Amino acid sequence: MTRELYALDSYVREFRGRVVRVSDKEVVLDQTAFHPRGGGLESDTGRLTGGGKERKVLEVKRNGGEIVHVLDSAEGLTEGMEVVGVLDWDRRYRMMRLHTASHIIASIAYNKYGALITGGNITPEYAKDDFDVEKKEVLQDIVSEANEVARRGIEVRVLFLSKEEALKIPGVVKLAERMPPEQETWRIVEIPGVDVQADGGPHVKNTGEIGTIETIKVENRGKGRKRLYYTVRP
């Protein structure tokens, strides 16, 4: 299994790892700071250097317990070789800000309106989430309240709890029709007094880093379903 450095510290920008397997243009390392596509987030991108050559990391994906790095070329990489990975930090950091913003928005929607997220995706440019709400105005109010929370500068905590302890937390999994993860140890992201969720992705350390959450548009996606597009500004 690949050791997931981003789960321990979202701010790791550069790391060393060893090649476990090479297949065509795909490489598995013993550990990585590159977050794979999943959990509603686009994957990280960046560079991987080893054997005197630098390669682009075009995409990262999960395959069971392994994290697979898709490169522009894996030429010269061999099993056991040490490599250095460097993230496209601006891309990652924008997704971290949007990801933490999405947790705040989801928490307000759930706690105040009983609304669940029925789907969503986060890119470096914007995020989109589908909510089971009737009125567009509800989402505009939620974004306004989320900005108030972000400005409070609340520390974002990461905890590791047993599955049994995690399931005692009300609303710990807020995505509709999604089964909780099967791992015995759960990674919990908490914004004290605001939100607590089971989550494996990277986040900012403090809500003050989010900046201003700005609504791009709200779409009607059918009865009782609205899609919110939003971004973050400095």
Rank of each mutant, 00 (worst) to 15 (best):
Q31S: 13
V86R: 15
D90W: 02
A106W: 00
G46E: 01
G153M: 03
G39Q: 03
E137C: 10
L58V: 13
E155T: 15
R151Y: 12
F34K: 08
G85S: 13
D130Y: 09
T78G: 03
L159I: 01
L167S: 10
E42P: 00
D129A: 13
T118K: 14
N63A: 12
M96Q: 15
G120W: 07
V158D: 02
Y113N: 01
R94Y: 08
A106K: 05
L58I: 13
L167F: 14
G76N: 09
Y110E: 12
E54G: 09
L167N: 01
T118P: 01
L98V: 05
A127W: 00
G40R: 03
I105T: 08
L41G: 00
I169L: 15
E145H: 09
L48A: 12
K128P: 00
Y113D: 00
A150D: 09
D72Y: 03
A33W: 10
T78M: 01
Y113R: 08
M96H: 07
M81G: 02
I154A: 12
K135A: 14
L48M: 09
Y126V: 03
V57C: 08
E42V: 05
D88W: 01
L159C: 03
S144M: 10
R97I: 01
T49Y: 13
I122H: 04
D44C: 02
E54I: 08
V156S: 13
D72V: 04
Y126K: 14
T45Q: 03
T123L: 09
I122S: 02
R157C: 07
K135R: 15
G50N: 09
V133G: 08
T118D: 08
G65C: 04
Y93R: 10
D44T: 03
K163Q: 15
N111P: 00
R151I: 07
Y110V: 02
I154Q: 13
T78Q: 04
K53D: 09
D72T: 04
L77V: 05
A166Q: 04
E75A: 13
K163Y: 12
D141V: 00
L58S: 07
S73L: 09
A166L: 03
I105Q: 05
